[in-house]
Design a protein around this nucleic acid. Structure first.
Lengths: 218, 218
DNA sequence: CGTAACTTTGAAGCGGCTCAACGGATGTGG
DNA sequence: CCACATCCGTTGAGCCGCTTCAAAGTTACG
């Protein structure tokens, strides 16, 4: 079911022991593991209990588009991994659980609706937003997904599981542009960070306005 | 359920007679009609029998992203029209039918899967493709949806229900760029047209290669 | 005809990309 | 412990593809 892609890329060893292992209800997976297509392991959906997965799609010449970033509670639809439609990776140690379609039908249905809604919102971002709007939107989305602590309330800081290049591939930018936007936000006091992989939201409302491209009133 | 937006824009007269009319299983709708949110008329999904619908999302400052173009057989998910998530319009006289979720559950499920798959493919287009690749991809997609005749075989020409500005809003470009690409394709013999609203595909394979951004072999 | 809506085409400008260099953090081996 | 390599992030300079702005062409319709 999984395949390590550390440090570079990716022959597909279908014979790996992981592939044929019986799928337990829950398991941990390491960073930089790639999910194999579902023909190898019959599971319809996987829920993230803790950690971070990304869903991506590549052009044959290497251009990559990251389609979604999945944090706690989000669901990965395994049929999307077939046919070269998409591939999924873990970005950190990630705790997942298998969802049986019979018993979790309602949940899977809802998650598919959410996935489509997010895909539509992201299409607006990719097609019509400027670079600063894109980065602001992304930071707020990641804060929503990864800044909740155990009690459910929002902390101002969150782990950034994506590198600059991954943010770029998610937002349809280059890593340099992402870096410039993030550091501009930092200079302006909208966010702060010391390590590059943990961001603190300082001015949520200002970021929100930036992300939406205009004042909510007009 | 519907609202006319001809010729410009769009107050939302919820009291219009259309809104309260009982929803029949099938009906025709005129061009430039806007679908009202589903709280006004309890239907989960609508299938296009003939014609063309678009699903779009707007930013408050007027920027617009067209999310999908629906031809024969495609299904519109009415819950997406709620909450300002998206709006749907007819681009021509369009024959639609209501799908009851109880009896058409399987079909609706499949259509949702297809919608997500198309949304992901479109994200790749918006985020990572060049303008010529975008336009080539769009023309092939529209040909697939609108060039099938009654027997199901593919004709080389099809009606282009979208204006240049709508193609632009679908592809994340400006209408001028779309026009330049289309006319470049015409000069190169990849397509031909006399009226602007009907396109003939001349070199499908060459367009395919353009659309995918590289040769299938490399 | 005359107007309105849409399309085409040209010219100029700019936002984000490309290319390049540097810096900081981490890991490794002598 | 330091020298060195690697990986990722930052920053600058120049360029290019697409946008913006402008004007003319085309089609439909009264």
């Amino acid at each position: 079911m999984l395949e390590q892609v550390n440090p570079t890329v990716i022959p597909v060893p279908f014979g790996a022991a992981e592939t044929r292992a019986p799928f337990r209800q829950e398991r941990w997976i390491a960073p930089q593991m790639k999910f194999l297509p579902p023909s190898q392991w019959r599971v319809a959906a996987i829920r993230v209990i803790r950690g971070c997965l990304i869903v991506a799609h590549e052009l044959p010449d290497g251009r990559r588009q990251i389609l979604d970033v999945l944090g706690q509670g989000r669901i990965l639809f395994c049929p999307m991994l077939a046919l070269g439609t998409a591939t999924a990776y873990s970005l950190t140690y990630t705790h997942i659980e298998k969802l049986e379609p019979q018993t979790n039908h309602e949940i899977i249905e809802e998650a598919r609706q959410l996935a489509l809604k997010r895909a539509y919102a992201h299409a607006l971002l990719l097609g019509r937003k400027k670079s600063t709007e894109k980065v602001a939107t992304a930071l707020l989305d990641l804060a929503d997904q990864f800044a909740r602590n155990s009690g459910g309330q929002m902390r101002p800081s969150f782990p950034l599981y994506l590198m600059r290049s991954e943010l770029a591939d998610w937002l349809g930018l280059t890593l340099e542009t992402v870096s410039r936007c993030i550091n501009e936000f930092k200079r302006n006091g909208l966010i702060s960070f010391e390590r590059t992989d943990r961001i603190t939201i300082r001015e949520r409302e200002a970021l929100r306005i930036l992300a939406d491209g205009c004042m909510p009133s007009g």
